[in-house]
Design a protein around this nucleic acid. Structure first.
Lengths: 247, 247
DNA sequence: CGACGTGTTGATTCCTGTCAATACTCGTGG
DNA sequence: CCACGAGTATTGACAGGAATCAACACGTCG
């Protein structure tokens, strides 16, 4: 396990970077203490599979640091990413025995895990957890439906712009961005982007470079992206103007 | 309001056809009584819009009878159906002020509505409701992700077969189907199917008739579908064989 | 260096969208 | 009764966007 990753593990919940956004967000001090007793940290390196589809789920948990994907695979190998996992996102489904998706770390990742059984028992007794989980699940459902529009109705170019827009927006909110060009690192390979967008990696490559040629984005290396004009990007994504607000 | 629809309104919760599957499924008699005080029925005719995207949500509720869709529309008119509403499905999002999707009745529909504020207050005091809603939301999230695979990675033919397969499966479970050919009525127009599948209505028409020519399905009129061999249909949908189990 | 993973670029194919014409069903009204 | 129109569905011709197949560039690691 890399030293770098270990350094990212919070000493206690008070230090935890996702304390106020994760499934524990609404917990009081005493509830947090109970959670603390059943939690443990695990680290994964980029590319590692966290959960295999069909396997028994031993734990549920939150992404503390890093980026992951939920993917579904057809028999013939066609793949679709059905969810992005960002810090504070919840992994696993209480009440279900086996995983339905592959969960893969796309960057080095730290997870805050809870053994499934104790967590389920605690959920029954702790409304704050169940309430927060419901809220988060509803948000994820909205995100999934938003993505259905992207997959079903947008062109390749709009799909790429949509993905960039989402990552840019997340980055801007996390890093308290204040005007000016947005800059961020794409946490996904071309192939992962293709699997997210329902495209081939060749098309992803072509469209990214087209957006670059036309000045919608700038690239340093293959992954470092600068967005000089966010509204322009939103336009390319086919979103209405106010959809791009950094609310 | 049509007499036919009024006849579908349950006299009391005990008579309600969705009593054991809706958001009230886990409620005890006393809880049901409380719900009863804030509930009322509304009926909608085929084609009627139940909720407009962006409007203030006055109520949440359950589909008692009928079929509806959740749709999202882009400025230029491109549309995507992001959810099917079948009996027992829940409409509305507690904790949110305005609707994010259009909700449209595609057949004559009966809804069991709760004024939003009282329902939210009751949710806080009644864990059984929140628990059930969480479960239902998790199921919807799974369905949405399943659909992302359909939208992102399946061919037009597979998309049509997937839709037929889903409707057939639902029908088989509702009507206690016991072997032999499955028969059902498509509750959607070609256009609605196209909007669900991310296709044009012309492509939908062509693929349906292709499946008919090749004997995968039979048609009486435009909407009445017979599936002589469900496994064959599952195969055409690109699902693995066990995915077609009527579990 | 060579192998491998990742990304770019080109040539070609083909699936699906687009545009257009036609049929069918159902109600309405002359 | 039939004409008419609106909504729904089918079918054909054609074009275009993305997939496919293929070659090559770049960086890293053993």
């Amino acid at each position: 396990m890399s030293k770098l990753l270990v350094a990212e593990i919070p000493r206690e919940c008070g230090d935890c970077p996702i304390r106020h956004r994760a499934v524990c967000a609404r917990c009081e001090a005493d509830e947090l203490e109970l959670l603390d007793q059943i939690k443990y940290y695990r680290t994964y390196e980029a590319g590692q599979t966290i959960v295999w589809s069909g396997d028994r789920m031993e734990f549920v948990g939150s992404v503390v640091k890093g980026v992951g994907t939920l993917t579904q695979t057809m028999e013939d190998g066609r793949r679709q990413v059905v969810g992005l996992l960002l810090p504070s996102d919840f992994v696993g489904r209480p009440g279900r025995e086996t995983a339905t998706y592959d969960v893969v770390a796309t960057t080095d990742t730290v997870m805050c895990c809870f053994r499934k059984k104790p967590f389920e028992e605690m959920m029954v007794r702790t409304p704050h957890i169940a309430q927060r989980l419901l809220q988060m699940t509803l948000d994820e459902l909205d995100a999934a439906r938003e993505w259905m529009l992207v997959l079903g109705r947008k062109t390749a170019r709009e799909k790429i712009a949509s993905l960039l827009s989402i990552v840019a927006r997340r980055d801007a909110t996390l890093n308290l961005h204040a005007g000016g060009p947005i800059e961020f690192e794409l946490p996904l390979t071309r192939e992962a982007m293709a699997d997210y967008l329902g495209l081939t990696l060749e098309t992803v490559s072509r469209q990214i470079n087209a957006l670059k040629r036309e000045g919608v984005i700038e690239l340093k290396g293959k992954r470092q992206v600068t967005v000089p004009d966010f509204d322009r990007l939103s336009e390319e994504a086919g979103d209405d103007s106010d959809g791009g607000m950094l609310s």
